[in-house]
Design a protein around this nucleic acid. Structure first.
Length: 971
DNA sequence: GGGGTCACG
DNA sequence: GACGTACGTGACCCCT
C-alpha cells in the first residue's frame, strides 16, 4: 500500500538527466561559481585547527548529492585559473571592481580542488580563461559527440549555453534551468541572452552595457528588433528620445559588452573529452578527506551514498542475474554501457541495488510455516519493516489484501491474503480467470503476526504507519513499538521537501521504486491490489518494505546528529496511534439533512442563475471566471476590470464586492451564487458521498507530514474547513451529529497564537494583559491608540484586532491596509505605533529573520525546525515572502506543537478518569469529541485541563468548551 | 494539470 | 524604479 502522501511524488526536485541512459551524459560543475555562493550561503564553520571550511562542506554535500542523482554519468569540475583573462586585453576594467575574496574563503580554494580530487573527479582549468569559457567549450564538444550535458551552476552568464542537449541545474536551489527558466530571467530565449546582457550590462562583473537600460527594456528591444546589431542599425527609429540617444551614443560600448559576456566555446581543451568518463571513486580516500575536514556527520552518509551509487563494482544490475522473481518481472535491466545510445528514454531509470547489498531476495510467503520463519527472523534482528496492501486508501474501511515485511536491507517478503477475492465476491462467472492463489487465511496470518507486532522487543517500522496501524487495529492487533520513516524525515527536513516514500527513495537512495500505477494502472483501467498478479505484487510490496527499512536505517541516526530526538519522540511519534484511532472512529453525518440542503440549494441556484442571465442580457456559465469577467467588463462595461498575470480579468469576491457597492445588482447576485455553489459542490454534495457504507460515518485522513509548520492537514474529505462563518454555512455544521445517546464536545484554545507571540517575543504589556484575562484586542487598542478601555469603540478595536492578526502573519503595510480598507501608508503608521508600544516585538522579528537567513530554517518553542528555502532568494519579493513565513512559522508551529502535546496526553487522561469520550477531529486549535451524554460535562473538564496544561508558559493557555447535539451547537 | 476561487484556522 | 505583497492548508470548477 502506498500511502496517500507518498503517491505521485515522481516529478522530484531532482536534477535533469544528462543521460542517454548509457553513462555518456556529462555534468560540468562550475566549481569557481559554487565556491562563492556556498561561502556566502552557509554559516561559518571551521576545522578543529581553525581552518574555515563552510564552502568545502557545501561543495562536498553538493557533489555527493550530484553523484547520487547523476547516477552513472560523467562528472567534471571546472575552475577559473587566475584573475586576468583574455577579456582584460580588450577591456581592462573587466571584473575590476571585484574585491579580494574574504580571508575566510582564501584557504578554501585549494581545499575545494582537493575535495574534487578526493571524489576522483577531473579538475578542468586553463590559464587565461574563465571557468565559463571552458564550460562553453566542453559543452560544445560533448554535444557534437552526441553526449547530453548538464551545467551545474546558478550563474546567469552560463544561461546563454542552454540549448537542446544542454541544460543547467542550479545546485543551491535544487532546480533545473531550461529554456523556460532562462526566458523567465532574461525575457528572451537562450540564444539571445548575450544581446540582452550586452544592453543591460552587469555591475558585478563591470560590464558597462547601455546606461538606463535594464533587463526588462533590453528584452523588449531585442524581441522587437531580433538581435543587437539589428537594433543598433535601427537605433534612430526608436520613439523614446532618451533611449534613442543612449543607444546611438553607447553603441560601441554595447558591442564591447557583448564580447565580454559572450563565452568562448573554442578554447583549447586542457583534457580530451574522452577522458571525461564515469570513474570509479576511491571510497577510502574520500572518507579520509572528509574526516580530515571534521565532516563527521556526513561521512556515514557518504559511505552509504557511494556504496549504493551505480558506479561501484556491483555492476549496477547490468550483468548480474536477477536474484528473484521481483527483479525478473521488473523493468528492463540497465543497458550495457558499451551499447549505442538509444533514442527512447527508459521508462524508468535502471534498477540498482541499494546500500552494500549485492542482491535483493524477495520471497512470496504462502504458508504458515514460511511466515513463522519470518517472525523468527524478526525476533533475531529486533527490527521489522511492515507495509500493508489494501483495496482502498481509506484504512478505516479498506480490505487487507496483503502484508509485506523486511528484516534487513534487501531481504523482504510479501504475504498475499486476499488476492483474487474480489472476482469471487462479485460472483462473476469468468472461466478464463485464474483460480485464487494459495494464501494463508487472513485470520491465521494475523494470529501468527500478532505476537511479533505486539512484541515490545521488536521495533516495527513503517512509512506512514498510521495507515497500517488502523488495519492491524481492525484485526485486533495493537502494533507497538512503532517507528515511522516518514515522520522521522518530516522532523529532520520539514519544509525542505516532501516526505513520500518515492521522493525519499530518489533523494536518499538514488532509487526509483516501482510506481503504483505501473502495478495497478490508472484512470478507468485502474485495478485494485487484490487483482494484481502475485509476481508483480511481490515485486512492488516487498520493495516498499525493503525501502522503508533502508530509509529508516539512513534517517534514524540523523535524529541524534541533528538534535531532533525530543521533537520526534514527544510530538510526532506518539501521535501515530492517537490519530489512527481518530480516523478510524470517523464522525457521524446526518445524510438526510445534507441531501435536503442540496435540494434547496439547487432550487436557489437555479433562481439566481436566471436572474444573473437576465441582468447580463445573455446566458453564460457563471462558474467560469473567464466568461464572467468578459460579461462584466467587456459586455456590460462595469468599470475597466483588473487583469491578473495571465491576462484574465479578476472576478474574486473583493472585485465583485466593490461592484456591488457601486450598485451593480448582478455583482451581488453572482456573489450569492458563488457562495451557494461552493457550499453545494464542496460540502452538501461531496460529504454525502464520503459516508462509508460500512460504518455509516465519514473518515477523513489527517496528513501528519504535509505542512511546513508542523500542523496537521485533513483530506478526503477535508474536515478542517467545514463552514462556520455564514448562516448558510452553519447549516452544514449542523449535519455533523452525535450518535444517539451521545453529545459532541468541542474544545478550542482561545487566542493561542497571539499568546505565543507575547511569550516568544517576551512582550511584557501583552503578557500582562493575557494574565489579567483582558479582552486582548481591546487592550492592545487601548495601548496602541492611547484610548482608555471604557472609551473603546468597536471600530478602534477592529483595527487593533487586524493588527494583532497581521503580526502573526508577518505584517506588511500593504496587507494590513487591504484588510482594513485603508491606504498602505496609513496602515504603516499603525504598525509603526504598534511596534513602538511593543518594542520587544520588533527586536524579536528581526532576530527571527536574522536566524532564518543564517541557518535556512526557524525553530518553534519545542525545537521543531521549519526550513525556509526562499530566505536567501535574491529576488526581493520572494525574499520578503520568505521573511513573513519565517515570522509566522514559529508561531503557527509552536501552536501546533502544543496541540500535539495535548492530543498525545488525551487518551490516557480520559482513560484515567474513566471517560469513554472519543476524539474525532482536530481543527488546528480545536478538538472535537463524541461522548455519552451523561459524561459530557466531566469530559469537558478533563479535556480543558489537558489542553491548558499542555505547556507551561509565561502566559496562561485558555481552552473553552461547548457541548451540543451537533457541531454547530457545540462550537 | 494549472489557475482561479473560496472554505477553514 | 519596479516589483508584489499578510501566514498555513485542500477541494472544486473551468479550460487547455
Amino acid at each position: 500500500m502506498t500511502d496517500a502522501t507518498a503517491a505521485s511524488q515522481n516529478d522530484a526536485a531532482g536534477i535533469p538527466a544528462a543521460s542517454n541512459g548509457d553513462g555518456s551524459g556529462l555534468y560540468l560543475v562550475d566549481g569557481s561559481g559554487f565556491i562563492f555562493r556556498a561561502f556566502h550561503a552557509l554559516p561559518m564553520l571551521t576545522r578543529p585547527d581553525g581552518t574555515p571550511v563552510n564552502a568545502v562542506l557545501g561543495f562536498s554535500n553538493m557533489l555527493l548529492k550530484l553523484l547520487a542523482d547523476a547516477r552513472a554519468e560523467a562528472v567534471a569540475v571546472v575552475f577559473d585559473s587566475k584573475r586576468l583573462n583574455f577579456r582584460n586585453e580588450f577591456y581592462p576594467d573587466y571584473k575590476a571592481h571585484r574585491p579580494e575574496p574574504p580571508e575566510e574563503l582564501k584557504p578554501q580554494f585549494a581545499l575545494i580542488r582537493e575535495a574534487t580530487e578526493a571524489f576522483c573527479l577531473p579538475c578542468l582549468e586553463l590559464e587565461g580563461y574563465e571557468a565559463d569559457d571552458l564550460i562553453a567549450t566542453y559543452a560544445r564538444l560533448a554535444q557534437e559527440a552526441g553526449r547530453k550535458v548538464t551545467i551545474v551552476s546558478s550563474d546567469k552568464d552560463l544561461m546563454q549555453l542552454v540549448r537542446p542537449g544542454v541544460g543547467m541545474f542550479d545546485p543551491m536551489k535544487n532546480k533545473a534551468i531550461g529554456p523556460d527558466e532562462v526566458f523567465e530571467k532574461f525575457g528572451v530565449p537562450p540564444e539571445k541572452v548575450v544581446d540582452v546582457q550586452a544592453l543591460a550590462g552587469d555591475s558585478v562583473d563591470n560590464v558597462p552595457g547601455v546606461p538606463g537600460i535594464g533587463v526588462k527594456t533590453a528584452a523588449q528591444l531585442i524581441t522587437e528588433y531580433g538581435d543587437l546589431e539589428a537594433l543598433l542599425a535601427n537605433a534612430e527609429k526608436i520613439k523614446q528620445p532618451a533611449r534613442r540617444q543612449k543607444l546611438i551614443e553607447f553603441a560601441e560600448q554595447a558591442r564591447i559588452s557583448r564580447r565580454l559576456v559572450l563565452l568562448d566555446e573554442n578554447v583549447p581543451p586542457p583534457k580530451p573529452l574522452d577522458e571525461l568518463r564515469v570513474r570509479e571513486p576511491d571510497h577510502q580516500r574520500l572518507i579520509d578527506f572528509l574526516k580530515a575536514q571534521g565532516f563527521r556527520s556526513i561521512v556515514s552518509r557518504v559511505e552509504m551514498e557511494m556504496l549504493k551509487d551505480g558506479r561501484i563494482a556491483d555492476g549496477a544490475g547490468s550483468s548480474a542475474a536477477p536474484a528473484s522473481a521481483a527483479l525478473a518481472s521488473a523493468a528492463p535491466a540497465a543497458k550495457d554501457p558499451a551499447a549505442a545510445p538509444s533514442d527512447e528514454p527508459a521508462e524508468r531509470p535502471a534498477r540498482k541495488t541499494v546500500l552494500n547489498v549485492p542482491e535483493v531476495r524477495y520471497e512470496l510467503v504462502q504458508d504458515a510455516d514460511a511466515l513463522r520463519r519470518w517472525v523468527e527472523r524478526a525476533r533475531e534482528t529486533g527490527v521489522l519493516a511492515v507495509d500493508t496492501e489494501t483495496d482502498s486508501l481509506t484504512p478505516a474501511t479498506a480490505t487487507l489484501v496483503g502484508v509485506s515485511l523486511s528484516t534487513e536491507p534487501g531481504i523482504a517478503c510479501y504475504i498475499p491474503l486476499a488476492h483474487g477475492a474480489s472476482t469471487a465476491a462479485a460472483g462473476q462467472l469468468d472461466f478464463d480467470a485464474p483460480p485464487p492463489p494459495v494464501q494463508i487465511p487472513t485470520a491465521e496470518a494475523m494470529a501468527i503476526l500478532k505476537d511479533v507486532l505486539e512484541d515490545s522487543s521488536v521495533l516495527k517500522i513503517g512509512h506512514n504507519f498510521k495507515f497500517d496501524h488502523q488495519l492491524f487495529a481492525r484485526n485486533g492487533i495493537a502494533v507497538s513499538p512503532v517507528d515511522d520513516s516518514m515522520l522521522i524525515s518530516y522532523v529532520l527536513d520539514g519544509g525542505a521537501h516532501g516526505h513520500g516514500m518515492d521522493e525519499l527513495a530518489e533523494m536518499h537512495l538514488a532509487y526509483t521504486p516501482i510506481p503504483f500505477k505501473e502495478v495497478c494502472g490508472t484512470g478507468k483501467n485502474q485495478i485494485t491490489f487484490d487483482r494484481v498478479p502475485l509476481d508483480k505484487a511481490l515485486a512492488y510490496a516487498a520493495e516498499d518494505a525493503d525501502i522503508t527499512l533502508r530509509l529508516w536505517t539512513l534517517l534514524k541516526p540523523r535524529l541524534v546528529d541533528d538534535r531532533m530526538v525530543t521533537v520526534y519522540e514527544t510530538l510526532d511519534r506518539p501521535l501515530v496511534p492517537v490519530v489512527a484511532d481518530m480516523e478510524r472512529a470517523g464522525v457521524r453525518i446526518d445524510k438526510k439533512a445534507l441531501s435536503d440542503l442540496s435540494q434547496s440549494l439547487s432550487v436557489r441556484l437555479a433562481e439566481i442563475e436566471k436572474d444573473v442571465h437576465a441582468l447580463a442580457g445573455q446566458s453564460f456559465n457563471i462558474g467560469s471566471p473567464k466568461q464572467l469577467g468578459e460579461i462584466l467588463f467587456d459586455t456590460l462595461k462595469l468599470g475597466t476590470g483588473k487583469k491578473g498575470k495571465t491576462g484574465a480579468y479578476s472576478t474574486d469576491s473583493s472585485v465583485l464586492e466593490e461592484l456591488a457597492e457601486q450598485g451593480h445588482t448582478i455583482a451581488q447576485r453572482v456573489l450569492d451564487w458563488r457562495q451557494l455553489a461552493k457550499l453545494k459542490s464542496t460540502y452538501t454534495d461531496a460529504l454525502q458521498e464520503k459516508i462509508s457504507p460500512v460504518t455509516g460515518r465519514v473518515h477523513t485522513a489527517f496528513a501528519l507530514a504535509a505542512t511546513n509548520t508542523g500542523r496537521l492537514s485533513s483530506t478526503d474529505p477535508n474536515l478542517q474547513n467545514i463552514p462556520v462563518r455564514t448562516e448558510e454555512g452553519k447549516k452544514i455544521r449542523r449535519a455533523f451529529v452525535a450518535s444517539p445517546g451521545h453529545k459532541l464536545l468541542s474544545v478550542d484554545y482561545s487566542q493561542i497564537e497571539l499568546r505565543l507571540v507575547a511569550e516568544m517575543a517576551n512582550i511584557q504589556a501583552l503578557k500582562d494583559a493575557f494574565r489579567d484575562g483582558l479582552d486582548i484586542h481591546a487592550a492592545t487598542a487601548a495601548q496602541v491608540f492611547g484610548i482608555p478601555l471604557d472609551q473603546m469603540t468597536p471600530d478602534i478595536r477592529r483595527k487593533a484586532k487586524a493588527i494583532n492578526f497581521g503580526i502573526i502573519y508577518g505584517i506588511s503595510g500593504f496587507g494590513l491596509g487591504r484588510q482594513l480598507g485603508i491606504a498602505p501608508g496609513e496602515a504603516n503608521a499603525f504598525i509603526k505605533t504598534y511596534l513602538e508600544r511593543f518594542h520587544e516585538l520588533k527586536v524579536w522579528m528581526e532576530s527571527i529573520k536574522s536566524f532564518a537567513r543564517q541557518h535556512g530554517y526557524v525553530v518553534t518553542l519545542f525545537g521543531r525546525r521549519c526550513y525556509m528555502p526562499g530566505i536567501q532568494d535574491k529576488n526581493a519579493a520572494r525574499r520578503a515572502f520568505a521573511e513573513r513565513q519565517a515570522i509566522n512559522a514559529p508561531i503557527q508551529g509552536t501552536a501546533a506543537d502544543i496541540m500535539k502535546r495535548a492530543m498525545n496526553r488525551m487518551p490516557a487522561a480520559l482513560a484515567a478518569a474513566g471517560s469513554s469520550a472519543r476524539m474525532l477531529l482536530q481543527v488546528h486549535d480545536e478538538l472535537l469529541f463524541e461522548v455519552p451524554e451523561a459524561e459530557a460535562e466531566d469530559a469537558a473538564r478533563i479535556v480543558r485541563g489537558v489542553m491548558e496544561g499542555a505547556a507551561h508558559l509565561g502566559v496562561p493557555l485558555v481552552a473553552e468548551a461547548g457541548i451540543g447535539d451537533n457541531w454547530e451547537e457545540a462550537h
